[in-house]
């Protein structure tokens, strides 16, 4: 068997087979459940979405998503259902309307306002700081001149 083929087979053996199996087993419904579940917050664990959460409530919510898909509901209808039960809190990303805009824009506003204050303060300090008095460079003495010449030659 040529060496190159042996190397290829050896490389293939290092790929975990269950990983492939998991991807291949995922149906269209599974993918849709995952995509929707990733956008919804687990109300028990809060920092996780219901796809990643192991909480029983998150598991039941994934079941509800699956049932609604089976009933022919689309992604927006399913998200709207959870929104009608739990409010904006259920969404991993706050919707961009009303007071929620503050959440989206506040970091940039703070950056701009902070930058403005910093600029104003720095220019103020620069203006207020007196310039150092200008003095002529002292002439080189003989010892220094000789040392420079020695270093340039070496």
């Amino acid at each position: 068997m040529p060496i190159r083929l042996t190397w290829c087979l050896a490389a293939l053996l290092t790929i975990p087979i269950p990983l492939f199996a998991a991807v291949q087993d995922e149906t269209d419904v599974d993918i849709q459940v995952r995509e929707i579940a990733k956008t919804l917050r687990c109300t028990v664990c809060q920092t996780e979405n219901i796809w990643e959460s192991g909480a029983p409530l998150a598991q039941q919510m994934r079941g509800v998503i699956r049932n609604r898909i089976a009933l022919g509901h689309n992604t927006e209808e399913i998200r709207a259902y959870f929104l009608s039960r739990y409010g904006d809190y259920i969404l991993m990303e706050p919707p961009k309307h009303g007071v929620n805009w503050l959440i989206w824009l506040a970091p940039f506003l703070l950056l701009v306002v902070g930058g403005f204050f910093l600029y104003k303060e720095v220019t103020h300090w620069v203006r207020e700081t007196p310039a150092p008095p200008s003095q002529p460079e002292p002439p080189l003495d003989d010892q220094a001149r000789k040392r420079i010449e020695r270093e340039l030659e070496s």
Binding site: T43, P56, L57, Q60, M61, G63, V64, F82, R85, Y86
Partner: peptide, 13 residues
């Protein structure tokens, strides 16, 4: 039985 009732009422605990 399946948590549907609780989710319908927005229950989280």
């Amino acid at each position: 039985l399946k948590g549907q009732l609780a989710i319908d009422y927005g229950v989280y605990g």
